[in-house]
Simulated assay, not measured.
Amino acid sequence: MDDDRASGPLGSPALRVLREQLGRAFGGLAFPGSCLVCDSWAGADRASAGLCDDCRDELLDAAGPACRRCALPVGPFATREDGCGDCSGRRLGFDAALAIGPYHGPIRHLCLRLKSARGAWLAPQLIDILVEARAEELAYADARAVVPVALHPFRHWQRRYNQAEALAQALADRLGLPMVRGLRRVRPTSALWRAGRVERHRQMRGAFQAHRRRLASLAGAPVLLVDDILTTGATCSAASRALKRAGVGSVVAVVIGRAEGRG
């Protein structure tokens, strides 16, 4: 499989490991033993280094019942398989979605830190929590590869970093799957956070193309599509449709935070 691991902003596997180690070292210097959310003592020698017990528990507690179609939190007795009140009847490009939890509190705080290259070392921490919280959903997906949502080349050049790719690589490493850069963003979009649901979907239409050669060995195979936040589903839907046009099977959108979209 051509997953293009030797190219891209994270570089070769050896460079990626080095950058992750340097990032963790920087985090340890900047926040020695303190929790990344509340600044209380976390203990640098623990498996959950960087998060105190209370904040880590809060992140795991956020992973309550959620709609399996769009990852929006739902009540404990809601039917989750066929969509919730927010997504039922809406056309989505992906087949299912999962998130740690709602995009507020510690999840929002950590996602905002992850958006900067200096926060890339947080990706494995967040993925560890996601895998623990959503192990059943990830097993059910039975994915064969992990694909990050791509940035437009100009945005990538500006930032020199893609948080979706950092998360995708961490998830691939954790699950023992290849990380495939199977998408390219061919059309820039304006700031989507200002736009409502209809406008977001309009702007994202045709924004992605698939690298068919890199995806050739995934014909008919289920994949995990990774981004940091899901709001209206416009970005993940457009990316999923591009992947399906290239021949992949089902697509599960995997994100850290699920924000409520505007109407």
Rank of each mutant, 00 (worst) to 15 (best):
P65M: 12
L51R: 01
A14L: 12
W193P: 00
A246M: 01
L130S: 04
V37G: 08
A63D: 11
V223R: 01
V17E: 11
R91L: 14
M204H: 10
V255D: 10
G33P: 06
R185W: 04
H201T: 13
A99R: 05
V149P: 08
L51S: 05
R68D: 13
D128R: 08
G247C: 09
A123K: 06
S12F: 01
A139S: 11
A145E: 00
A141P: 13
L138F: 07
F94R: 09
A49F: 00
G64R: 13
D82H: 15
F31L: 06
P13S: 06
V74K: 00
G263P: 14
R258C: 04
A253T: 07
R134Q: 03
L230D: 06
G182P: 13
G8S: 00
A71T: 13
A239H: 00
Q169E: 14
C55F: 02
H156K: 07
I107E: 01
A49E: 09
V255Q: 09
D61P: 05
C38H: 08
D82G: 10
E58H: 12
A47D: 07
Y103T: 00
G176H: 13
S190K: 14
L122W: 01
I129A: 07
L22N: 07
E199R: 11
R205F: 11
A99H: 01
A78V: 15
H152A: 05
C38P: 10
M1A: 14
K244F: 11
H201R: 13
R213I: 13
V131Y: 03
W193H: 15
G93S: 02
D86N: 09
R155T: 07
W157F: 15
A166P: 08
R90I: 12
A239R: 03
A150Y: 02
L175R: 10
V146E: 01
F208E: 09
D227P: 07
A234G: 04
I256V: 14
R155S: 09
S250P: 11
H211E: 15
